[in-house]
Design a protein around this nucleic acid. Structure first.
Length: 462
RNA sequence: GGCCCCAUCGUCUAACGGUUAGGACGUAAGCUUUUCAAGCUUAAAAUCGGGGUUCGAUUCCCCGUGGGGUCACCA
């Protein structure tokens, strides 16, 4: 955006100075695992607040004493902390009963609410609750994402706002807290749209200013249904355990329902804050696509420096790796570049180890002698070629033995005989695998002596 | 079912009312120093349907259809 005239510049500054500070909140209830959808809601609230140098509040909505669990609250905190979404304030609704009580009393005093005698139809229901006196009017609000939404609140009836003076319910606590905490923007999932008219009625009754609403699209499973356990991992911590990078995970989440309008897709957390715009958030829900997550994660992986990789990788090394015969840190640090190229997330390392894809770097592989023979060449040929390979390798300097020099040494011979005829048996001699990195890279890791030793073993087998 | 919301490739998405409807993931094919991985190139793949408005609709309006949300003394 360019300033077109001094006039708009003035207006811009005027607004900067007079607009009140933006305050957003993320208000999860600790009644279950911390979901990826919740993470995205938290992210958008965070991004918006940070971008505008506002405040981001975490509010634990634990008014339901039966369903709320401390362990779930801890999961929320842990998840957000892994994601790097830090809050400026934290509040627990269970600790604010007195505040709500005051408002309930006022509502009753002002005749906006009343104590209602009930005939309990179900077990556990009370014979007396506090209901809001519905004014039966039309309510409309301008959603920042969806535009104007209108409801006829008559359909809502006299909804219950508290079970008793000390047991307020969701709609009441939300309205009171958003007001008392000075929330300017309520950014939440579209599943809350139908709560909005109730909350508007309530906030008008308590004389609260109305916040701006932004209902963000939902994240759906691949069959367009609600994301649930049967679709695979739904909790944020599961993704942490699967070895995704938090920054990549956030990047991926942000892209469901939002994009900066350019072709760029890979963003750091800082870039996300810088580029995020509520106005660019979509209306329609999006599907959680795990393949794209893998790709985004891999892109972030590629951006890491060698040191970062080394630190990260050491944290996730499976214990099985160290149990491999011949394991050494020295060899392992040599294969890090090879490993990085073949994974998209940290847990893939464990898979590589489990599938024996790393073992041969540390220890002599076992394999069937038939594997050593490339296509139509014979065992005798393979033997002959390998003997020549050794002869060539012997001429090399131990200090100067790396994938490039090995390649230089062997290349013309391989081309002369046939690349597959020479390189395939060499590669199998070193790895024992039908599939692996090329023989030059493996040679570099193994070093001259071990390379020659393994080829000799192969020759014995032929 | 009532109320509310939504609708571009399989998926995530771009496109002042004028584009050969663009990009990315995934898929397929090919290339690159044997295999695998990575990389590169190419391909297939979309404006839900019907009416308007307009010289011209992906874009604006209406009606269908489809999908989703929500209808608690849960949040």
């Amino acid at each position: 955006m360019h300033m077109r005239s001094s006039k708009s510049y003035v207006i811009f500054h005027y607004r900067m100075n007079t607009e009140k500070k933006i305050v957003t909140r993320f208000a999860p209830s600790p009644t279950g695992s911390f979901h990826v959808g919740s993470a995205r809601t938290a992210l958008f609230n965070y991004l918006f607040a940070r971008k505008h140098h506002g405040k981001f509040i975490l509010r634990i909505e634990d008014t339901d004493k039966e369903r709320s669990k401390k362990e779930y609250e801890e999961e929320i905190i842990d998840s957000l902390s892994w994601l790097g979404i830090d809050h400026d304030e934290i509040h627990r609704q269970s600790e604010r009963t007195d505040v709500y009580k005051k408002y309930i009393q006022k509502l009753i005093d002002d005749d906006f609410a009343y104590i209602s005698k009930e005939e309990p139809q179900e077990e556990g229901k009370r014979s007396e609750v506090i209901r809001f006196r519905n004014p039966h009017k039309k309510v409309s609000f301008k959603d920042l994402i969806l535009g104007t939404i209108e409801f006829d609140t008559t359909d809502l009836g006299d909804f219950v706002i508290a079970k008793d003076m000390d047991t307020p319910l969701y709609n009441l606590t939300v309205v009171v807290d958003d007001f008392e905490l000075g929330i300017t923007h309520v950014i939440r999932g579209q599943d809350h749209i139908s709560n909005t008219p109730r909350q508007i009625l309530l906030l008008e009754a308590i004389g609260a200013t109305r916040p701006l609403y932004a209902h963000i699209p939902l994240i759906l499973a691949s069959d367009r249904s609600k994301l649930s356990k049967r679709h695979g991992a739904t909790s944020v911590l599961e993704y942490k355990e699967m070895g995704y990078m938090s920054e990549a995970f956030l990047n991926f989440l942000a892209l469901i329902g939002w994009n900066p309008g350019t072709d760029e897709e890979i963003f750091s957390f800082e870039q996300l804050i810088e580029k995020f715009e509520l106005e660019k958030v979509h209306k329609g829900s999006g599907i959680f696509n795990p393949e794209k997550l893998d790709w985004v994660n891999k892109e972030h992986l590629k951006l890491l420096t060698e040191i970062e990789i080394e630190i990260a990788i050491k944290k996730v090394l499976p214990s099985e790796l160290k149990q491999i015969e011949g394991y050494s840190e020295e060899i392992f640090s040599k294969i890090i570049p090879i490993v990085i190229e073949r994974i998209s997330k940290w847990s893939d390392i464990a898979t590589l180890v489990k599938e024996g894809e790393l073992e041969y770097y540390f220890t002599q592989p076992s394999y069937d002698s038939a594997q050593l023979v490339w296509k139509k060449s014979t065992a005798e040929d393979a033997k002959k070629y390998l003997e020549k390979v050794i002869e060539l390798l012997e001429t090399m300097n131990t200090e100067d033995f790396n994938s490039l020099t090995v390649k230089d040494t062997l290349w013309s011979y391989a081309e002369e005989i046939g690349k597959g005829d020479v390189l395939w048996p060499m590669r199998v001699a070193l790895s024992g695998k039908d599939r692996s990195p090329d023989p030059f890279m493996i040679s570099e890791v193994l070093g001259k002596d071990e390379t020659i030793k393994r080829i000799k073993i192969a020759i014995e087998k032929l």
